[in-house]
Nucleic acid binder design. Structure first.
Length: 256
DNA sequence: ATGGTGGCAGAGCCA
């Protein structure tokens, strides 16, 4: 089984890139973030033609997440974090076969100390509690998406410049660590990886050309699922294509 | 370089 995550920064704009990438990578399941469309704008026929059954949590203009499955239609959908009244569509949990999938587009946080930063930390706290309950019910669970946190300094192109900044600050890393403390592991770090592997590069200042990036797109697995993980990598290819997303897709392969 | 680029929507927000 191959699982992928990709922040596409507008699905309607990126549909050609998604189709091209899908033809080569052939994942069984894709978690998309920042689809930036409503449910009725979602390109369901085009994705069905690629062989995907879909679940969508859409929103006008901002955010929005979706799951694409070649393993049967996603079922038992959850789109709201318990205890958090939030109109923003950033979460989509679903069951595919005997796998529980949680697709997340975690808040960016804008700047340390801002209102959006406080919202980010509150969102992570609600996510932690939700995942604790999900883990109690599902042995094989994957949480994947754009976490908007670089876990460690080695996930940052210039750790000195980014020290304490949003996406790298101590409270954000602690919020991510709280997910790891549930027993979830970062599949990427279960394998030897090249230094300077990132998943997001700013459109500005030629970030990709300089490899001035961060690794903020993650695949986290429960203990039983992590034991089945055989590889995890970033595919930077699509980031170099015409009219790219600012994120690259992340892939993980499992025994079954 | 306190900028830069990109998406949405049609000016400013968000990233």
């Amino acid at each position: 089984m191959r699982i992928a995550s990709w922040n596409v920064n507008s699905l309607r704009v990126r549909l050609p890139q998604l189709a091209q990438w899908d033809a080569g990578a052939r994942p069984d399941l894709i978690a998309l973030q920042e689809i930036k469309c409503t449910d009725d704008q979602f390109p369901l026929p085009e994705l069905a033609a690629l062989g995907y059954g879909c679940a969508v949590a859409g929103q006008k203009t901002y955010n929005g997440v979706a799951l694409l499955s070649r393993l049967g239609a996603p079922r038992e959908l959850v789109t709201d974090l318990p205890g958090l009244a939030d109109p923003q569509r950033r979460l989509l949990a679903a069951t595919v076969g005997d796998l529980r999938v949680v697709d997340v587009y975690c808040p960016n946080g804008q700047a340390v100390g801002s209102d959006k930063y406080a919202y980010k930390l509150a969102w992570f706290a609600a996510l932690r509690d939700f995942l604790a309950a999900e883990l109690a019910r599902h042995a094989r669970l994957v949480v994947l998406g754009d976490f908007n946190v670089a876990p460690e300094d080695r996930d940052v192109h210039d750790p000195v410049a980014w020290a304490g900044q949003v996406l790298c600050s101590g409270p954000e890393r602690a919020a991510l660590q709280a997910l790891f403390d549930l027993g979830l592991s970062d599949c990427f770090r279960r394998f030897d990886q090249p230094a300077g592997t990132f998943s997001w590069w700013d459109y500005r200042a030629a970030g990709f050309r300089r490899n001035a990036g961060l690794r903020i797109d993650l695949v986290l697995a429960s203990p039983a699922l992590a034991a089945e993980c055989r590889d995890c990598r970033v595919d930077p290819g699509p980031r170099g294509w015409e009219r790219p997303s600012d994120h690259a897709p992340v892939l993980a392969d499992f025994d079954r």
